[in-house]
């Protein structure tokens, strides 16, 4: 069995997985510049609701940059400029009268390194809800979020303790709990497992499979097995000679891994580069 065949065996069958089916968020001619550097060129992408979409590609191909465009995280980088449109619920989120604060509340994010606030576990989750004007019962929300992130059983007795007392995997699940506490529609995950050991990684992957019943998830990953294991759709990014990233191929995961349309995709997923 070749490495490619092994990989394909792990991919779940997903009959409904069809690109462009009532997209929750779409990118249209998305270009990103860092100063004079053209980082990402002409990305067009439809993200399906309640599905996991994986972004894969070699280093520097712009997959994280595109991900961060989806909740205007790139605004925090002073030299970053975005051209093109990202349409969320029919509106371009880069429209001048769209408030990035609102976008981010509705499109949550989990980062590469677990980054809980240096506060208690409880406050980590409650903070987002509180600033967003949550009026319900905070204790219930915290519990619900922690259950949603499969962390409740482990931390229910130490909610007042500092989040940095948790292990790396627990911290990352806390970050996920924190993200879902603001009731987003989409969750962006930027290599969420790269700082974790294999067991914690599996726990997060299982969690993603549960969460996808409620949210659309976009995950950037360097780990092709992970993309194959968890995602319904996969977007493969590549870089051209000018180090500008572009979307090389996008499709249902099974199809992309079994019948890649592009030579570069095939080379990448069989491990010839990247």
């Amino acid at each position: 069995m070749t490495r490619q065949e092994q990989l394909i065996d792990t991919i779940p069958e997903n009959p409904q997985a069809k690109s462009g089916d009532q997209a929750v968020i779409t990118a249209e001619n998305l270009n990103v510049y860092y100063g004079n550097f053209h980082a990402v060129r002409d990305v067009n992408l439809h993200i399906a609701p309640r599905k996991i979409t994986a972004f894969i590609g070699p280093s520097g191909c712009g997959k994280s940059t595109v991900l961060r465009c989806f909740n205007r995280m790139n605004d925090l980088i002073p030299i970053a400029r975005v051209k093109g449109e990202v349409r969320f619920e029919g509106r371009n989120i880069y429209d001048p009268n769209v408030d990035p604060v609102e976008v981010r509340r509705r499109i949550g994010m989990v980062f590469q390194k677990p980054n809980p606030f240096p506060k208690s576990i409880y406050d980590n989750i409650a903070w987002g809800a509180r600033i967003n004007g949550y009026r319900g019962n905070m204790d219930e929300l915290v519990e619900e979020s922690l259950r949603g992130a499969a962390l409740w059983k482990e931390v229910k007795d130490k909610l007042k303790q500092n989040a940095y007392g948790l292990s790396g995997g627990q911290q990352q699940r806390l970050c996920i709990a924190r993200a879902i506490a603001t009731k987003p529609e989409i969750i962006l995950m930027d290599e969420p497992c790269s700082a974790l050991d294999p067991i914690a990684t599996l726990a997060i992957e299982d969690l993603m499979k549960e969460m996808v019943e409620k949210y659309a998830i976009i995950i950037v990953t360097h780990n092709m097995q992970q993309a194959a294991r968890v995602s319904d759709f996969t977007a493969f990014y590549n870089v051209d000679e000018g180090r500008t990233g572009e979307l090389a191929e996008f499709g249902p995961t099974k199809q992309l891994f079994t019948k890649p349309r592009q030579k570069a995709t095939e080379d990448y997923i069989t491990g010839r580069f990247g």
């Binding site: 909740n71 995280m73 925090l76 990035p100 604060v101 609102e102 981010r104 509340r105 509705r106 949550g108 994010m109 980062f111 390194k113 980054n115 809980p116 606030f117 240096p118 903070w127 987002g128 600033i131 967003n132 970050c175 924190r178 993200a179 506490a181 603001t182």
Partner: peptide, 27 residues
């Protein structure tokens, strides 16, 4: 103050002042 705190704060829908007040200043 680690940029990660700010990103986390903004990522949850915090305004600039809320992020400064709750995360940057305490750290």
């Amino acid at each position: 103050v680690p940029q990660a705190y700010r990103e986390a704060g903004y990522g949850m829908g915090g305004t600039r002042w809320q992020v400064i007040r709750s995360h940057v200043l305490p750290s």
